[in-house]
Design a protein around this nucleic acid. Structure first.
Length: 231
DNA sequence: GCGACAG
DNA sequence: ATCTTGTCGC
């Protein structure tokens, strides 16, 4: 089943068929399930991608959920074909994400993505889409808003407000550091709205982004940098 | 038509 | 995302 959805997604990534991409997002949104993550969570992975033109440098960092010790790191480099279009980010990034995940020896219990989960116009952001296809619980942690309304959260660390869209709670706007812009956290796949705060708080160190995402971001840029300096 | 718009 | 130096502040 996942295989079919993965193939359908990859076909669109290569064809660049925008109407088909939007149709698939609507189809996946109906299938999405944001409840029932299995506890305890043993491992968590952060995933992110750096770019040099159309070359994507994807990285995944797996950590022990309780100790936050790094268990494994991996990356994958490839050229991307789908352009960046607001609302269709997953069609630009999923291929590299899939390849990176296939390089992992560990199969994480939870994935944290740099982007939206269901806080998306069609409730199918990069975290939700990737989580469903990989069949791994996921959370979206974006650095800015895509849709929805909210009141600015308080100034202290971990102060937060609710991100709402058409009267529905779709995520939380969380201040992970004082004097710093908040992050937009939303359920991706199989992670209940009510569990978001606790999980992200646990994963937040001294940086704005949660540790898994922060490390994946730095690693992707490091890979990109070393690729440029050696060629 | 106008404004908004993840990475 | 990426282009980019110094600089203010924790």
């Amino acid at each position: 089943m996942r295989k079919e959805l993965i193939d359908k997604t990859l076909a669109i990534c290569q064809s660049g068929d925008i109407p088909a991409a939007i149709a698939l997002q609507k189809e996946l949104a109906v299938l999405n399930d944001c409840s029932g993550i299995v506890y305890p969570i043993s491992t968590v992975a952060g995933v992110d991608i750096a770019y040099d033109g159309n070359t994507a440098y994807a990285a995944a960092v797996v950590m022990d959920y309780a100790s936050l010790d790094i268990i494994e790191k991996t990356s994958f480099i490839e050229n991307v074909s789908f352009p960046y279009i607001s609302g269709l980010l997953s069609f630009r990034e999923f291929p590299a994400i899939l390849n990176t995940m296939n390089n992992l020896k560990t199969r994480p219990d939870l994935l944290i993505f740099d982007g939206q989960g269901i806080a998306h116009p069609r409730k199918m952001g990069i975290a939700a889409h990737s989580g469903i296809l990989l069949d791994i619980p996921s959370i979206g942690c974006a650095k800015s808003r895509l849709c929805g309304e909210y009141e600015p959260p308080g100034k202290n660390r971990f102060d937060f407000s609710i991100l709402r869209n058409k009267g529905e709670d779709i995520g939380i706007v969380l201040r992970t550091r004082e004097n710093t812009k908040p992050v937009f956290v939303s359920p991706g796949y199989k992670v209940p709205f009510g569990d978001l705060l606790e999980i992200i708080r646990h994963l937040t160190g001294s940086f704005r982004l949660p540790l898994p995402t922060h490390l994946a971001d730095r690693m992707s840029k490091q890979i990109k940098g070393s690729a440029n300096n050696s060629s």
